[in-house]
Computed example of a mutant assay.
Amino acid sequence: MADPFDWGLLEPAGQSGMAASDDAVLEALVDVERALVLAWADLDGTDGEALAALLDSSAVDRDALLAGVRADGVPVVALVEQLRVQAGEQAANVHRGATSQDIVDSALMLVSRGALGGARHQLAEAGNALGALAQRERMTPYVARTLSQAAEPTTLGAAMAAWLDAVSSSVAAVDAAAFPVQLGGAVGTGEAFERLSGRADAPWALRASLAEHLGLADPGRAWHTDRAPVLAVAAAAAQVCATAGRVGRDLALGARDGTLLPDSGGASSAMPHKRNPVDAVILTANGLRAAGLIATLHAAALSSDARPAGEWHAEWQAWRGLLRLAAESAAVLAHAVSHLVVSAPAATASTAPASDVAVAAAGTVVDAAVARFVALTPETERPQ
């Protein structure tokens, strides 16, 4: 087995992004092939469980798979060859009528569902912590800034409520995301499914069954040339990164005067007195990285033909990269706000006391933000 290329040396929160790792993608690819076997069995009225059980991602020769990826430009050809060997006499029933894009797109939707599901859990953790912080600091005087300059007195709780509102928006975006299965065959018409089954309804029946076995949505169509589903998932992931990055920027700025500091960590190799806001740095960096990845996906959506030469392939790492950053950012955000030390003296040192009206207005903002977050999250996601 070849050594892993990226094991986290330059990815400080890399462990949190493992939901989008090569291992996760490989398992998802095999999951789709298993589910396709089961979908065909549903269509034929046979039992596909025994064959599906033979398809084992842990038994895949990864060096041979990587050689195949380089030779074929896609991972599915070499993978299917190995899965058919595993299937033995039932080899012809593996990957029956499908094309590489069916498998890759469906697998990446599986990975998206898992990664964004994990991110949502972490966003809920962050929101719970932010809600508590906003309530605790709802009367702590704080100077709001516009265009980098001091604007008007408010409260630190109101500033934190704004972060919570952004977290709630990201939760809503993830909740609204759809993860559709892709199944259309070589050029999206499903011709092979009709031909192999002798049934005109085979493309629709197989797609619905495949979606059910994978727990993905059935779009009722092949979307291989319409990348709107990819862009929608990417937008949700990018929003998570932007939300976390926005909070990260404020945390980094708050660390300059000691108002907002992590409770530990952040060493410097040259200046031992420093306590760097590492979480804030990671959040900001991830937010900046996400912009280029979503730009790649938007550019790749301007493709051509039933399968373009390069645009679809350009999506893979950008799509997976956004999922990774979203998972990392949500986890780091939850850690950052749960380990935040607030210094009220530093917050109020250069701040004129807020008027009773300003404090009351800030409190209204806090209450509204907390209520919105609570409405978006079930009781099981809140502290007991």
Score class of each variant (00 low, 15 high):
324 R>F: 03
198 G>R: 09
243 T>W: 02
9 L>G: 14
366 V>H: 00
104 V>R: 09
163 W>Q: 08
282 I>Y: 06
331 A>K: 09
36 L>G: 07
151 A>H: 08
142 Y>H: 06
230 V>Y: 05
66 L>A: 13
156 L>V: 08
85 V>T: 05
279 D>I: 00
160 M>L: 14
353 P>D: 10
199 R>Y: 03
247 V>I: 15
236 A>T: 01
146 T>N: 08
30 V>K: 10
17 G>S: 15
334 A>F: 05
81 E>V: 03
156 L>N: 03
213 H>I: 13
356 D>Y: 01
365 V>N: 09
383 P>Q: 11
285 A>P: 11
45 G>W: 06
250 D>T: 09
30 V>R: 13
181 V>Q: 06
382 R>P: 00
383 P>R: 08
313 H>R: 11
91 A>M: 02
279 D>H: 15
66 L>K: 10
70 R>P: 00
38 L>A: 08
287 G>E: 03
291 A>L: 15
280 A>I: 14
300 A>T: 00
343 S>Y: 03
181 V>N: 06
156 L>R: 01
320 R>S: 06
259 T>A: 13
99 T>D: 08
47 D>I: 01
232 A>W: 01
48 G>H: 02
358 A>L: 14
305 D>A: 07
142 Y>W: 14
326 A>G: 04
102 D>H: 14
104 V>K: 07
280 A>E: 07
200 A>R: 12
301 A>D: 02
263 D>R: 02
361 A>K: 00
221 R>M: 09
75 P>H: 04
276 N>Y: 02
206 L>V: 00
221 R>G: 05
111 V>K: 04
109 M>C: 08
13 A>R: 10
196 L>D: 11
12 P>T: 15
39 A>H: 10
310 G>D: 04
305 D>T: 11
245 G>Y: 14
62 R>Q: 13
6 D>E: 15
91 A>F: 09
215 G>Y: 05
20 A>F: 10
169 S>K: 01
171 V>M: 08
314 A>K: 09
180 P>V: 13
140 T>H: 04
357 V>C: 04
284 T>V: 13
78 A>L: 11
214 L>M: 11
61 D>P: 14
364 T>C: 14
60 V>T: 10
312 W>T: 06
25 V>L: 12
128 N>P: 04
182 Q>R: 09
145 R>C: 08
148 S>V: 12
207 R>Y: 01
157 G>S: 11
377 T>A: 08
283 L>R: 00
71 A>P: 00
329 S>V: 12
111 V>I: 07
360 A>N: 08
325 L>G: 03
168 S>D: 03
127 G>L: 04
339 H>Y: 09
327 A>R: 12
24 A>K: 01
379 E>H: 09
35 A>D: 09
122 Q>S: 15
329 S>Q: 05
6 D>R: 09
125 E>N: 13
93 N>D: 15
359 V>H: 10
106 S>D: 03
230 V>Q: 14
362 A>F: 12
258 G>V: 10
123 L>I: 05
205 A>L: 13
157 G>R: 05
302 L>V: 12
332 V>F: 06
223 W>Q: 12
106 S>W: 04
96 R>H: 01
52 A>I: 05
13 A>N: 11
265 G>N: 11
172 A>Y: 03
